[in-house]
Design a protein around this nucleic acid. Structure first.
Length: 206
DNA sequence: GTGGGGATTTACT
DNA sequence: GTAAATCCCCACA
């Protein structure tokens, strides 16, 4: 058994050591098996910490985002809005702080387990959105830093991929760094970031 | 030590 | 459509 060492050169996840904008679309169609559920990824977003005001890594390495600064092919999990987890795959050449947010997927195995974790959800909505995706895979902060080399399996490059702006960001909201499988029903809906209360909208007065 | 903000989801009108 | 829920992280004093 050859031990696969992510980020060390060759191996099934070698693509993740490429720059994030190359690696991100290649995650579409990949399968991820965690917590007894297998997901086919349908929507991701790229975050480039060295060059991206919208990334958690933009202000340097901290205790929370340290996984993004580590080798490619590991899970970066963070907690947000007081109730949800979101998960990313670290990627990029060693020394860069890039990651790919997993936004949506289609459950292809462990459907009963996934349904039990989100009883009120239709099958299509089980992993439609980053918080939901983490929920049905049973991901929480305990999984931060997890080595994905044995649970993430890439498929062939897909032809029909769409791109657009990332969801929910106030900073760098114009960068088309969101990738999804064109026409897939499990892709989440685009929602622009909420303007801050007290902040005037860009509408001209008078 | 304190305060502001967030890569979201859900329920309700 | 709008609003509330609710914890952690980070910057600053």
């Amino acid at each position: 058994m050859a031990a696969v060492s992510p980020g060390s050169g060759s191996g099934p996840l070698e693509i993740l050591t490429r720059p994030v904008l190359e690696a991100a679309p290649r995650l579409l169609g990949a399968t991820l098996t965690l917590g007894g559920v297998t997901l086919r990824l349908t929507e991701v977003e790229a975050y480039d910490g060295d060059n991206d005001p919208g990334s958690h890594a933009n202000r340097g390495r901290t205790e929370r985002n340290k996984v993004m600064f580590g080798p490619a092919g590991h899970l970066y999990v963070y907690f947000t809005y007081g109730m949800h987890h979101c998960c990313n795959v670290s990627c990029g050449p060693q020394g860069t702080a890039s990651a790919i947010l997993l936004r949506a997927g289609e459950v292809i195995d462990g459907l009963d387990t996934a349904r039990a974790r989100r009883p009120k959800s239709s099958d299509r909505d089980l992993a439609r959105g980053p918080g939901r995706l983490c929920k049905i895979l049973g991901i929480d902060r305990e999984d931060d830093g997890l080595d994905l080399s044995e649970v993430l399996h890439l498929g062939p490059a897909l032809d029909d991929i769409s791109t657009g702006p990332r969801v929910g960001l106030r900073l760098a909201a114009d960068r088309p760094w969101r990738f999804w499988i064109t026409g897939d029903p499990t892709v989440s809906r685009y929602v622009a970031a909420k303007p801050r209360p007290g902040t005037r909208t860009a509408q001209p007065r008078r």
